[in-house]
Amino acid sequence: KHICAICGDRSSGKHYGVYSCEGCKGFFKRTVRKDLTYTCRDNKDCLIDKRQRNRCQYCRYQKCLAMGMKREAVQEE
């Protein structure tokens, strides 16, 4: 069993190059498709875990990228 590289929830498989849960997969897809931009209200180092993953979209998206999620993979779907 794999866990989500972004928030630690149960992974549903590899999405956009990274083991991730449905929540983070959908979040990344929406962000890329709609070309959304986020801002962090703190120091750009918010904790992203299962409980708090919805608290800061900026940091969640940065963690998706840092863990290796690929924007191109969304476009190719």
Rank of each mutant, 00 (worst) to 15 (best):
K44E: 08
K1E: 04
R53V: 12
V32T: 13
A66T: 11
G13D: 12
K50R: 09
V18N: 01
G23R: 08
M69C: 05
Y16R: 07
C4I: 01
A5Y: 15
Y58H: 15
S12M: 13
V74R: 09
C21W: 00
Y16W: 10
I3A: 03
S11H: 09
L65T: 15
K29I: 04
E22T: 08
H2R: 05
M67N: 10
I48C: 08
C24K: 00
R30S: 04
C4M: 00
S20G: 15
A66R: 09
Y58F: 09
F28G: 01
V74Q: 10
N43V: 12
R10L: 04
C40P: 01
N43S: 12
C59P: 01
C7E: 01
C46S: 03
I6L: 04
Y58M: 07
A73I: 14
C24W: 00
F28L: 02
T31G: 04
E76V: 11
V18F: 04
A5Q: 13
L36D: 14
A73Q: 08
S11V: 03
H15I: 03
C59R: 00
V74E: 09
Q57A: 11
I3L: 12
Y16T: 08
G13T: 11
M69H: 01
K14M: 11
V74M: 09
R30P: 01
I48R: 09
D9C: 00
C24G: 00
V32Q: 10
S20V: 13
M69D: 01
K44A: 11
C7Q: 00
N43Q: 05
I48N: 15
S20D: 03
A73V: 09
G13K: 15
K44F: 09
S12R: 15
Y38S: 09
A5L: 14
R41C: 15
G17L: 05
M69T: 02
T39V: 14
S12C: 01
E22M: 04
Q75K: 07
E77M: 08
L36C: 15
Y38W: 06
G17A: 05
M67Q: 09
K14V: 07
K1V: 03
I6C: 12
F28C: 01
C46Q: 03
C4P: 00
T37M: 04
L36G: 13
I6D: 01
R10E: 07
C21T: 00
R41Q: 14
L47D: 06
R10P: 12
K44C: 09
A66Y: 08
A66N: 11
M67P: 01
K50N: 15
R30W: 04
M69E: 02
K63N: 02
L36E: 13
L36W: 09
G23Q: 04
F28P: 00
C7H: 00
C4V: 00
Q75T: 10
K44L: 06
Q57I: 03
L65F: 08
G8H: 07
K44I: 14
E72P: 04
T31F: 06
M69Q: 04
G26P: 02
A66E: 13
R51D: 06
D9F: 02
H2S: 12
I48Y: 02
D45F: 05
R41E: 15
E77Q: 10
V32H: 06
V18M: 04
I3C: 13
D9W: 04
T37R: 08
T39G: 14
L47C: 07
D49W: 15
K50V: 14
R41A: 14
K14D: 12
C59I: 00
L65R: 05
Q75R: 11
G17M: 13
G26C: 06
Q75P: 11
C56G: 02
G68F: 05
D9G: 04
R10T: 09
Q57H: 14
C46V: 03
R33H: 10
K44M: 09
R10G: 06
H2W: 05
D49F: 05
G68D: 07
M69F: 14
R71A: 13
D49H: 10
K1N: 09
T31E: 03
S12I: 03
C4N: 00
T31H: 04
K29Y: 03
C56Y: 02
A5M: 14
R10Q: 11
N43P: 06
V74F: 12
S12W: 06
L65S: 07
R51T: 13
C7R: 00
F28M: 13
H15Y: 07
K70L: 12
Y16N: 05
Q75G: 10
N43Y: 08
R33M: 11
H2G: 11
D45Y: 07
C56S: 02
L65C: 14
V18W: 03
N43K: 15
S20T: 15
T37F: 08
K44W: 10
E76F: 11
R33N: 10
G23W: 10
M67R: 11
G26R: 09
G17D: 13
R71N: 12
T39M: 14
V18Q: 04
K29S: 07
K1Q: 03
Q75V: 12
L65E: 09
A73K: 06
I48E: 04
I3M: 06
C4R: 00
D9V: 02
I48M: 13
E72Y: 02
K70Y: 14
Y19P: 11
V74K: 15
K70D: 12
V32F: 11
V18E: 12
E76I: 08
Y58P: 02
M69L: 08
R30Y: 04
Y16E: 15
A5R: 14
R53G: 10
L47R: 05
Q57L: 10
L47Q: 05
T31L: 04
Y19F: 05
C40H: 05
R30K: 15
N54K: 02
L47S: 04
L36K: 09
H15W: 06
R33P: 04
A5N: 09
E77H: 13
G23S: 02
C7D: 02
H2T: 09
Y19D: 08
K70E: 06
Y16K: 05
T39Q: 08
Y19I: 05
F27S: 11
K70N: 15
R30N: 05
R71L: 13
C24L: 00
C40T: 01
R41G: 15
E77G: 15
D49R: 03
V74Y: 08
M67G: 09
Y58K: 13
C7S: 00
E76Q: 11
R51F: 08
T31N: 05
C46L: 02
F28R: 00
R10I: 09
V74N: 06
Y19M: 10
C46Y: 02
C21V: 00
D49P: 09
D45L: 07
R33T: 10
E22Y: 04
G26H: 09
G8S: 08
C46H: 05
R53N: 13
T31R: 01
R41Y: 11
Y38P: 14
C46R: 02
T31V: 11
S12V: 12
V32K: 10
G13P: 04
L65D: 04
K70G: 14
I48K: 15
L47W: 11
H15V: 05
S20C: 14
C24H: 00
L65W: 05
D35Y: 04
C59V: 00
